[in-house]
Design a protein around this nucleic acid. Structure first.
Length: 590
RNA sequence: GAACCCGUAGCUCAACUGGAUAGAGUGUUGGCCUCCGAAGCCAAAGGUUGCGGGUUCGACUCCCGCCGGGUUCACCA
């Protein structure tokens, strides 16, 4: 039983005795006491007062008196303000809590988390970075709580859009390769995707100039006709088309691999749409037979979701080729068959809210009970000051470029501060990497994932204040203290068993450490890494404040010195743990 | 047109899911390195939580109506 549970059950037993109210420790409104009042925990008593038919003040007083007299080892004193009962714990409770071993939750449900899900015709950009970091972090958080987690990626490697870059390369590429051009493979293929779009626009403008309407021009597009023909050839396994496809995708994967490696992103399993869409088509067939789907005159396959408040949705084109959702159906089935996860979490931007609603409905209508476990983790998009990023219009912040800039900034700052004495070249570049990526990752993860966020490339990302480097700095600083403290044999041998009184800053720090498990649980429940970011930020602040006021090795009382050393060590451990949950590395020196 | 999401200090974000006087960072102003690491610490200033109603002991939070922004409703993915 942890501290908060202990407090809840103490209050609960007192309430039962005093007012014979129903027993429910988890339903009690217990929160941290606001810092302008004296106390560690606060019980909000309005609801209890109502049940007891007494005034909130009187109820608070009675409960407070009962608690301090019945549990003197836990509660030291209390005060009542309006309907709030503020409880002050005995300092020894905090010390015990600090030194207690962490506990685990037992066997928990299995999660599959899908994230990243790139297209093979676009290099990774800022939006993908947010996606990757969220997916990675949510997975780590679930694991930390004891859930088995399978991290998967779904590569969008087929479809009309892929044919676009293939066609463009065929027509205008002159045999260009990553080697011949010196370009990263994903960038090279992305270049041809953009070229296609430009050529298509040119063609459309020419057609419209001959007097066609926009709609007619789109219908008559020779380029789009060629693309559709290529997709048909691809689905028919035409060797030449398949060869080109495999070759160009290979370039892209090499490019992605280096970006993932630098970001520290890994997967347990990678799915390719090209390998799952056929299963999707099979299920479409099944749905037709069971009359869940129906066919239009042109042979296209649909589902009518108007009863669910949604529209009709196409599942297969008239020419028999499959659409986006077809492969998602197949992929979900495949994953269920292979791993039987209790929950399938899709980390996908909120612009696809509708798509996932539809997907879940379809699977449910097809009688897949496990569709209940589908959860769309819908995160907000990243905005630039100029508006939305559009890869086809070139208004994107490229992932590789951004990482490079952050690392360069870290280097510049570190050199300015002149803290690289005694480091060799390898140590220095690894430090810049740690700091630059730390700043970037923390920046992306500290905000509520569900909200859209603004990224201003000009103001870039800070290294002071509520930032990754601030927390990394706190860790490095503790490391420095501990290295020196370890040299002090006297401190190492001292005991701190007789400490009963805590300094305010010590107590604050221990209290913050004690909140870790609650934060972790909340972060897992909400799929919200920002809660971990806030927790670790508060922890770093508490430590810095403590550090400023409480001498550690310079403390004359050896027992106190030892205690503060242990407190520092626990703090450093927790910082490292939390940053790990965010995918952020920690430097020993900076 | 319909559905969903969002509007909080100049800026970027919090607010324990209905609790106390709405908090941080940044920026601005001032203080702290003969003292374990100043990427730090301490302080000041900064708010009618988009607007108007309602629900109750209590509303940034829930309900209704406006205003502003975004996304989706494609045989694009």
């Amino acid at each position: 039983m942890n501290l908060i549970q202990q407090i809840r059950s103490s209050i609960d037993s007192v309430l039962t005795d005093l007012y014979q109210v129903e027993s429910n420790p988890d339903g009690l409104l217990v929160s941290d006491t606001k810092k302008e009042h004296e106390g560690d925990f606060t019980l909000t008593v309005f609801a209890i007062a109502k049940a007891a038919r007494k005034s909130p003040e009187q109820t608070g007083q009675e409960v407070g008196e009962a608690l301090t007299s019945r549990f003197p080892a836990l509660f030291n004193r209390f005060n009542v303000i309006k309907g709030f009962l503020n409880l002050v714990l005995v300092d020894g409770v905090w010390i015990t809590n600090l030194l207690a071993a962490p506990y685990s939750e037992g066997v928990l449900s299995t999660f599959m988390v899908e994230y990243s899900s790139p297209n093979t015709n676009k290099p990774l950009h800022l939006g993908h970075i947010r996606n990757n970091l969220l997916g990675h972090s949510v997975s780590e958080i679930l694991k930390a709580l004891g859930h088995p987690v399978i991290k998967v990626n779904l590569v969008n490697d087929r479809g009309v859009h892929i044919c676009k870059s293939m066609l463009a390369w065929q027509r205008w590429g002159n045999g260009e390769t990553p080697v011949s051009s010196g370009m990263k493979g994903d960038k090279l293929v992305g270049k041809y995707y953009v070229i296609f779009d430009k050529e298509l626009k040119k063609e459309q403008a020419e057609l419209i100039a001959t007097g066609l309407s926009e709609e007619e021009a789109a219908k008559q597009s020779a380029l789009m006709t060629a693309v559709r023909a290529m997709l048909l050839q691809w689905e028919a396994a035409d060797p030449a088309v398949k060869e080109l496809w495999a070759r160009m995708n290979g370039w892209v994967y090499d490019g992605f691999a280096s970006t993932y490696a630098r970001l520290g992103i890994r997967f347990d399993k990678i799915y390719y749409e090209s390998e799952t869409y056929l299963l999707g088509k099979k299920i479409v067939e099944e749905g037709l037979q069971s009359k869940v789907f129906y066919q239009e005159a042109d042979q296209s396959v649909w589902i009518d979701l108007s009863a669910e408040g949604l529209d009709k949705k196409v599942l297969q084109r008239g020419d028999g080729t499959s659409v986006y959702i077809t492969q998602d159906i197949g992929t979900a089935q495949l994953r269920h068959d292979e791993f039987h996860p209790d929950q399938m979490v899709y980390v996908v931007a909120n612009e696809q809210d509708y798509h996932f609603k539809v997907l879940k409905h379809i699977l449910t209508k097809l009688g897949r009970k496990w569709a209940d476990g589908l959860y769309h983790f819908s995160y907000g998009m990243v905005d630039l000051p100029t508006g939305k990023m559009k890869s086809r219009e070139g208004t994107v912040v490229d992932a590789d470029d951004l990482i490079e800039e952050m690392v360069a900034e870290a280097e510049k700052l570190t050199l300015e501060l002149g803290k690289t004495q005694g480091m060799d070249q390898e140590e220095m570049s690894s430090l810049y990497e740690t700091l630059g990526l730390g700043a970037l990752k923390y920046f992306m993860l500290k905000v509520d994932p569900r909200k859209r966020m603004l990224f201003d490339p000009k103001e870039s990302i800070d290294f002071n204040g509520n930032t990754g480097p601030f927390i990394q700095y706190t860790y490095a600083r503790i490391g420095s203290v501990l290295r020196k403290a370890n040299a002090e044999e006297a401190i190492a041998r001292a005991s701190y068993a007789n400490i009963t009184q805590l300094h305010d800053k010590e107590r604050e720090l221990i209290k913050q450490l004690a909140r870790y498990h609650e934060s972790l649980k909340a972060a897992a429940k909400d799929f919200n890494p920002a809660l971990i970011a806030h927790f670790v930020y508060e922890l770093a602040k508490s430590y810095n404040s403590f550090y400023h006021e409480c001498p550690i090795m310079k403390e004359d009382d050896k027992e106190k010195a030892k205690f503060r050393t242990v407190l520092s060590e626990k703090t450093a451990d927790k910082i490292q743990q939390c940053l790990h949950l965010l995918g952020i590395a920690v430097p020993e020196r900076m």
